[in-house]
């Protein structure tokens, strides 16, 4: 389903050129639950953003479901992300002026959606244990609660792929387990493909496949 061939991404820091991702090729099947592990600065997050079409590789291709992400227009790529991919970022990624419910609904502002989006958002918030916080603003939520809102938002558009960058970083063990269970549930019931970046070896061990990034180069664990 996801075919990554020879992608490289470099950054320039002054006169030095730094290869964040170096000639990585990877094939990920539909409905996989996999993790990318590695130390800080190993290129995990950059690889995730390349897979999600958030940044253009210097070379190589990312093909998802037959669509080469960088051969389509920017508008088409935006629509592709809006319909088929969703993200959980490693930082508090909520819009401060929107309530928890509105934050979950946010992706639907960028496309046409049928059905009761608000009811679905409410249901998702219930699934992450925040059914009683739907009208709270991010400033009224703890860091862990904000993270759970972001996780609920990742499923609002019924994505085929969820790209999660340290999704349980701020959460306690119990909540971490609940969230991981939720990922498993979406994976097994709806066939959602999960690619999870983590440096948590225990969490990675719960995924069916692990790949390791070292200095931008990939190797299967």
């Amino acid at each position: 389903m996801i075919e990554i061939k020879g992608i490289t991404k470099t950054y320039r820091a002054g006169s030095e050129i730094f290869k964040a991702v170096d000639n990585v090729s990877l094939s990920i099947g539909k409905g996989e639950l996999m993790s990318i592990v590695g130390h800080s600065g190993s290129g995990k997050t950059t690889l995730l953003s390349l897979i999600g079409g958030l940044t253009r590789p210097d070379s190589g291709t990312v093909v998802i479901g037959g669509t080469d992400l960088w051969s389509i227009s920017d508008d088409e790529l935006s629509a592709f992300r809006n319909r088929r991919i969703n993200f959980v970022f490693q930082f508090a990624s909520l819009i401060p002026t929107l309530t928890a419910l509105e934050n979950v609904m946010l992706p639907t502002a960028f496309g046409k959606w049928d059905g009761n989006v608000a009811a679905k958002a409410e249901e998702l918030l219930g699934m992450v244990g925040l059914g009683d916080k739907i009208n709270n603003y991010p400033s009224q939520l703890s860091g862990g609660q904000q993270r759970r809102v972001a996780i609920a938002r990742a499923f609002i558009n019924d994505p085929e792929i969820v790209l999660a960058d340290e999704p349980t970083g701020d959460l306690d063990e119990e909540t971490e387990a609940d969230i991981f269970q939720l990922f498993h549930r979406f994976n097994s019931e709806k066939g959602v493909t999960f690619i999870i970046v983590t440096h948590n070896k225990e969490l990675a061990a719960k995924t069916r496949r692990q790949v390791r990034m070292v200095h931008g180069v990939m190797g299967e664990s």
Binding site: D74, S93, F110
Partner: peptide, 16 residues
């Protein structure tokens, strides 16, 4: 900037 990046990640077009 981060918010704008997030909106774009969620599917907001450049024009949006």
């Amino acid at each position: 900037q981060r918010e704008i990046g997030l909106l774009r990640a969620m599917g907001a077009r450049r024009n949006t």
